[in-house]
Design a protein around this nucleic acid. Sequence first.
DNA 1: AATGAAACTGTCGGGTT
DNA 2: AACCCGACAGTTTCATT
Lengths: 157, 157
Amino acid sequence: MEIDDLDIKTLSLLCQRGRMTWAELAGQLGLSAPAAADRVKKLEERGIINGYSARLSAEALGLDLTAFISVTLDQPRHREGFLAAVQASAEILECHHVTGDDDYLLKVRCCHTRALEALITERLKAIAGVVKTRTLIVLSTVKETQVPSLDHLSESL
Amino acid sequence: MEIDDLDIKTLSLLCQRGRMTWAELAGQLGLSAPAAADRVKKLEERGIINGYSARLSAEALGLDLTAFISVTLDQPRHREGFLAAVQASAEILECHHVTGDDDYLLKVRCCHTRALEALITERLKAIAGVVKTRTLIVLSTVKETQVPSLDHLSESL
DNA sequence: AATGAAACTGTCGGGTT
DNA sequence: AACCCGACAGTTTCATT
């Protein structure tokens, strides 16, 4: 199954304005509304579109602090507990198993440095097996996209 | 202006299903459709909801490789060019100015190791002022949320 | 993939607590 | 101020060509 240029444009438009009407989308694509809706439905069925989300402003919600935390686990047997704790913690946005000196890289977002301190000392370091953490605080964010690059899929948009 | 529990629930629902109808949302909130639409409109006006996006599956698009790259710039005067290159590169999802040994932390997503190699050697290292990069490859992703934590805003959902 | 009809949704006004 | 109700325009959806 191929992804054509119209699919790319559809994805691009729906990433920018996820609640746009099929009629509006159809206008941008040069199609009729049912045809546009059909294409979107197929993209959903193929799993390319997972769903739709409201984009929230972290700052407007008072979440001014972003940080990346590297975590080292001493023993593989502690993994289960660590992963469960990660899932349970709302402040941890992302958790990746990575190559390099440490085992996991977390992206966290919280209100202020006190909350970050509590997260590191009371939650992360409390988990059995966490022997080391290293924290990078974000001073400013230059770019932050959720959407993967679409350019590599087509040359002529 | 306060954010009440109904707002929290509204945000939570719209993060899961951003295209849900006002009637459906209203049902979940125990309100009428116009009242629910009113609340959403106010959240949008306050900047708490920035917009809506389709969630795309990186894997379904063939973007199987995620990595974090630390970048060191030798001189502040090279910043402008670096930031411009970052914005122009579709494979770079995020770019944060961070504390620590290096200056910037990038999150990138591409097709395979060859594309990553090209990104690092032909694009990043080609930028004037980039003296060092350090790459962590993501082996697996345990958790990946865009949504900031909402729990700290209310105790009783 | 486009058209046309039926059902639904979003939106606006007015009225209520 | 926040919410509910009723009505109309616009939209989605289905069948058909």
